[in-house]
Write a protein that binds this DNA or RNA. Structure first.
Length: 675
RNA sequence: GCCGCUGUAGCUCAGUGGUAGAGCGCACCAUUGGUAAUGGUGAGGUCGGGAGUUCGAUUCUCCCCAGCGGCACCA
C-alpha cells in the first residue's frame, strides 16, 4: 500500500468508552485530544495506541484502539518520572558541561540517572541541579522525537564525547529503531515515549541522594556517580511520600534496638551483635518457637563445631568456591616474644564454619545408614561466620556472625518431592504464625562459580523444579543465583512496608554429600550417595528479628515482646498492692516489671509506651480495694478496669506462643496454602 | 571492596584557630501526683585515632578506622 493511498484513507480511533472518532487521514494524539476537548488537550501527556504508549506527536495512520494518558494514570506517572530523569540530565549537563550521561531508568517512587564525571557529585550539588530543573520546566521546551540511523547516532555521540551512549547504541539489537529525543538544545538517546514538553512535568519532584554505581552493574567496571530523585503528580503526593519515608525511618531496627534496649553493635566486633537481656529474650522466644515447629516435623537437633580443619573445607569445595568469605585461623600457639612474629605462617589452617552442611554430613557418616533410616533430618541453630565485605554490613540485618535456623535433610532421590512439599507447608505455616502471610518463591539456577558437572546440575535443577511444581506454589526464576553446590528455592516475604526479604531457602545438593563420602545402604545392598536438602525458614535469627522489629515497628506480638507488662502504682500508697499484682504475673509466667519509682503516672505511661511495652497495669486506691487493675494497652488511649486474676489470665492466653494451628488469616492470598 | 557524606556527654544535636554547650537521660533533694514529660540542684566529654601546619588544633591539611546512604556481594 502506498503512502499516498493511506494518507487519504480515513482513520478510525476507538476510545475507551467505545465511541469511535473518524479522521480524514493520519492524525496525532495531540489532534485527537484537541478534538475531544481543550481540557483533555491540556492534560494529555501521551497516548495508548493498541496497547503501546506513544508520544502525542506520533502520527497514527491506521484504525486503532486508543486512550489519552494524563498524569492521573499510572502510565502518566511513569512518564513524569522518566521525563524528570531527562530534565535532571539536561540540568546536569548545562551546569557541568563535561559530564557524560549513561542510563536513567525509573525505579519505585522515582528514578535515577548515572553520570560519568571526573569528580563525583556530592549532596551539595543537588540544590543547584534541582533549581536548574525547575528553570527547564519553566522554559517549557518542546520534546521532539526523531528516528536516527545507527551510524549517525554513534557518530554523533562520539563527536560530542558521549562515549557511554555510543557504547549503548553499539550494543543495541541491530533491528532496534534508534530514537532520539530533543528538548531545547539538549538531546538524549531514548526509547521513549515522552511528554510533549518539559512544562508538563510540574514541580512535584526532589533530588534525594547521590551514590556511586558501577557501569553496567559490574564491579570490574568504573564507578559512575548516580543521582536519585523522586517525582509525583503534585506537591501533595510528594509530601505524602516524604512523610512515608520519615515513618519508615522511625521503624529502623537500629533505632528501635537502642530505644528498646535490645542490642548494640560496636566497632571492636563489627558485624557481630551484642544482645542485651531484652533483645535476647526475643531471640530465645523465637528460637523456642522454631525449635518446637521443627521437632513437630521430624527434625533431630544437633550441635556441631565452630572450627574445622581446612582439609574438610577443601574436600567439600568451600575452600575453592567460598574461601574469600571465610575466617581462617592458624592452628598454632602464638608467640609471646616481643620481637618475634606472633604467628609463624607455617601452621595448618582451621576455618570458622561459614555453613553447617559439612559438619552435618560428619554426623550422618557416623555408623552405617540404611535406606530404611531415610529421610534423616538434622537441625541446628548453627552459629556461622562469614567474612562479609565491609560495605555490606547493615545493623543486625547483614552481619558477619549469624545464627541460622539451619537444617539438612538426607534422603533418596525419590523422596525429594515429598520433602519439598513438607518443607513448603511448614515454611508457610511459620511465616503465617510470625505475621508474614505473603511470600514469593524463586527457583535459583546454576551460578557461574560452581562445583559439580553439568549433568549433575541438569538433574538437580530438574528434580527441584519438579518438586516445586508438586507443591502447587506459584514461582519465578532467579537465573544464576543458585548456591555453588546446587540449585535453590528462595522464599521472599513481604513486610508491613511492602519491602521483600529473602529469608527461607531450600537447596538441593548432589555434590557435597558425594565429595564428603556420605553413603547409605540401599535396598539393593549397594552403597548410594544420599541427596542433601539444605534448608532454612527464618534464614538467620539476627536478620529475622531485625525484620520483625521493623515489620511490627517495635510493637511485638505479646508472645515475643521482651517485657509483656509493667505494673505501676499511682502513688506509693499502693506499692504493696502493685507488688501483689506483679507477683501474680510472674507466677503466671508473664515477663513483667514493677515500676515503683517516685514518678508521676503520666511520666511512666509515656516512658513504657516509648519502650513498646504491650500492657501497663495501673493500680491506685480503687484497684487495691477491689483487687482489680486498670489495663492500658500499647497504642490505646483508653484503659479498661479488670479483675486482677482475670487480667493476668487473659494476658497468659494472649501471650501463648503460636504453634501453626492458627486459622489462615484473610491477608493470605492462597499462595501459602499447600497442605 | 568501590563512590559520597558523617564522627562533639549514655541519646539527639548546636558550636569555635585560644583546651566546649543545650535538651533528654543519669544522681541527689523536694513533690504522693489517676493514664504520653512535677520542680530544683549536680555529676558527666583528652570533641573517632594518628601525623602535619601553627605560639596554640575539637576547628585547617593528610592518612587510618568506624558509622550512614548507595553500588557490588548476600541469609
Amino acid at each position: 500500500m502506498s503512502e499516498q493511498l493511506s494518507a487519504n484513507n480515513p482513520v478510525n480511533l476507538r476510545l475507551p468508552d467505545g465511541s469511535v472518532r473518524t479522521f480524514d487521514g493520519p492524525v496525532t494524539g495531540t489532534t485527537l485530544a484537541a478534538d475531544i476537548g481543550p481540557g483533555l488537550l491540556k492534560a494529555a501527556l501521551a497516548i495508548h495506541v493498541n496497547g503501546e504508549i506513544w508520544d502525542l506527536s506520533r502520527v497514527i495512520s491506521e484504525d486503532s484502539n486508543v486512550s489519552i494518558i494524563t498524569r492521573k494514570d499510572e502510565a502518566g506517572l511513569d512518564l513524569l518520572r522518566h521525563d524528570c530523569a531527562h530534565i535532571m540530565a539536561e540540568a546536569v549537563q548545562e551546569l557541568f558541561p563535561k559530564t557524560q550521561v549513561t542510563i536513567g531508568p525509573n525505579i519505585d517512587d522515582g528514578f535515577f540517572y548515572d553520570f560519568a564525571r571526573d569528580k563525583p557529585f556530592t549532596e551539595d550539588d543537588l540544590g543547584a541541579i534541582e533549581k536548574r530543573m525547575h528553570e527547564i520546566v519553566k522554559r517549557d521546551e518542546e520534546i521532539i522525537r526523531e528516528v536516527w540511523t545507527r551510524d549517525d547516532a554513534i557518530a554523533h555521540f562520539k563527536s560530542i564525547g558521549e562515549l557511554y551512549k555510543a557504547e549503548i547504541i553499539t550494543d543495541l539489537d541491530p533491528d532496534q529503531e534508534i530514537t532520539i529525543y530533543r528538548q531545547g538544545n539538549w538531546l538524549d538517546l531514548c526509547r521513549g515515549p515522552h511528554l510533549p514538553s518539559t512544562g508538563k512535568l510540574g514541580d512535584a519532584f526532589k533530588l534525594m541522594k547521590v551514590a556511586g554505581a558501577y557501569w553496567r552493574g559490574d564491579s570490574n567496571n568504573e564507578m559512575l556517580t548516580r543521582i536519585y530523585g523522586t517525582c509525583w503528580r503534585d506537591k501533595k503526593e510528594l509530601k505524602a511520600y516524604l512523610h512515608r519515608l520519615e515513618e519508615a525511618a522511625k521503624r529502623d531496627h537500629r533505632k528501635l534496638g537502642r530505644e528498646m534496649d535490645l542490642f548494640h553493635l560496636q566497632e571492636e566486633a563489627q558485624g557481630s551483635v551484642f544482645w542485651h537481656p531484652k533483645g535476647y529474650t526475643m531471640w530465645l522466644q523465637l528460637e523456642k518457637y522454631i525449635r518446637n515447629r521443627l521437632a513437630g516435623w521430624g527434625y533431630d537437633e544437633i550441635k556441631t563445631p565452630q572450627l574445622l580443619d581446612s582439609k574438610l573445607w577443601e574436600q567439600s569445595g568451600h575452600w575453592a568456591k567460598f574461601r574469600e568469605n571465610m575466617f581462617i585461623v592458624p592452628d598454632e600457639i602464638p608467640s609471646t616474644e616481643d620481637d618475634a612474629p606472633i604467628l609463624s605462617g607455617k601452621a595448618k589452617l582451621m576455618a570458622l564454619k561459614p555453613m553447617n552442611c559439612p559438619a552435618h554430613i560428619q554426623v550422618f557418616k557416623q555408623g552405617t545408614k540404611s535406606y530404611r533410616d531415610l529421610p534423616i533430618r538434622f537441625s541446628e541453630f548453627g552459629c556461622c561466620h562469614r567474612n562479609e565485605p565491609h560495605g555490606a554490613l547493615h545493623g543486625i540485618m547483614r552481619v558477619r556472625q549469624m545464627t541460622q535456623d539451619d537444617g539438612h535433610v538426607f534422603c533418596s532421590e525419590d523422596q525429594i518431592t515429598a520433602e519439598t512439599i513438607d518443607f513448603c507447608t511448614l515454611l508457610s505455616s511459620v511465616y503465617r504464625d510470625l505475621g508474614f502471610p505473603d511470600f514469593k518463591v524463586l527457583l535459583a539456577t546454576r551460578p557461574e562459580t560452581r562445583a559439580g558437572s553439568d549433568e549433575v546440575w541438569d538433574r538437580a535443577e530438574g528434580s527441584l523444579e519438579d518438586a516445586l511444581k508438586a507443591t502447587g506454589l506459584e514461582y519465578g526464576y532467579a537465573p544464576g543465583e543458585g548456591a555453588f553446590y546446587g540449585p535453590k528455592l528462595e522464599f521472599h516475604l513481604s513486610d508491613a512496608l511492602g519491602r521483600t526479604w529473602q529469608c527461607g531457602t531450600l537447596q538441593l545438593d548432589y555434590v557435597v554429600p558425594e565429595r564428603l563420602g556420605a553413603t547409605y545402604i540401599g535396598e539393593d545392598g549397594a552403597k548410594h550417595t544420599p541427596v542433601m536438602l539444605h534448608r532454612a525458614i527464618l534464614g538467620t535469627l539476627e536478620r529475622f528479628l531485625g525484620i520483625m522489629i521493623e515489620h511490627y515497628a517495635g510493637r511485638m506480638p505479646l508472645w515475643i515482646a521482651p517485657v509483656q507488662a509493667v505494673v505501676s502504682p499511682i502513688t506509693s500508697d499502693t506499692d504493696e498492692y502493685a507488688r501483689e499484682v506483679y507477683d501474680k504475673l510472674i507466677a503466671a509466667g508473664i515477663r513483667a516489671e514493677l515500676d515503683i519509682r517516685n514518678e508521676k503516672i503520666n511520666y511512666k505511661v509515656r516512658e513504657h509506651s516509648h519502650k513498646k511495652v504491650p500492657a501497663i497495669f495501673v493500680v491506685g486506691g480503687r484497684e487495691a480495694e477491689n483487687a482489680s487493675v486498670s489495663v492500658r494497652r500499647l497504642g490505646s488511649k483508653h484503659s479498661t478496669v479488670l479483675d486482677a486474676d482475670e487480667a493476668v489470665a487473659a494476658l497468659v492466653e494472649e501471650g501463648r506462643m503460636p504453634d501453626g494451628t492458627a486459622e489462615v488469616s484473610e491477608s493470605n492470598d492462597g499462595t501459602a496454602a499447600t497442605a
